[in-house]
Amino acid sequence: MLELRDIVVRYGPVVAVDRVSIRVEEQQVVALLGANGAGKTTVLKAISGLLPCASGDIAWGGGVISKLPPHRIVRAGICQVPEGREVFAGLSVYDNLRLGAYLRRNRHAVRSDIDRMYEYFPVLAERRDQAAGTLSGGEQQMLVIARALMSSPAMLLLDEPSLGLAPLVVQQVFSILRRICDDMRLSVLLVEQDAETALSIASYAYVLEAGRVVVEGSSVAMQGDESLRRSYLGY
């Protein structure tokens, strides 16, 4: 179980995330919603250790991880798919996937996982030797998701996986994600602009505004509350 307890994250003097508390149970999908600049990415970066928490702490699987460097957090089983398709542009698709499994020792299992990713995302199989930077935007998005899964995490942090994808591809990616979550028994913290889609996958959601949690509740309740949808989620 991942638990953020009153974390504060700052960029210099600017407080970007202000006492945010979030809980993600095992094998639960939780959505983190909010307008541009609300602080969603910042929350994920704090969990991954890319940004320090000015106060508050983050508990994961019985320990506190808020002081660990990013690579230790990956080792602890939390893997982030960063915003904006951060592929290793000059490296091949295959090398990108191998890097996803950087911490894993069992070569055999890694190889079979790569094959499994090729199964989930057949485009990647076709382009396995192509430089990742030359993939299309959607293909790159699939690659970063597959790459994160290669670390066989217990918890996946997804930052706007639908960004810039065609609606049809969004559906495709989300349905693959669903399948993977079931197969790999993953917990997911999902950041999304597209609240409707996110709520359809998640069971619980938090709405962030100007760095603070303003609403939280089950997806069903959120979908049912029309005024809330209008004012915060925009659909």
């Binding site: 991954s48 250790g49 890319l50 460097p69 990013p70 690579h71 990956v74 080792r75 893997c79 982030q80 960063p82 951060e86 592929v87 290793f88 542009a89 000059g90 490296l91 090398d95 890097l99 996803g100 950087y102 911490l103 970063v144 790459r147 994160a148 670390s151």
Partner: peptide, 15 residues
């Protein structure tokens, strides 16, 4: 090569 290409992403790979 990964660190050279994208340090942020490489940190997220556990490097």
């Amino acid at each position: 090569r990964a660190v050279t290409s994208n340090p942020m992403a490489s940190a997220l790979m556990g490097i």
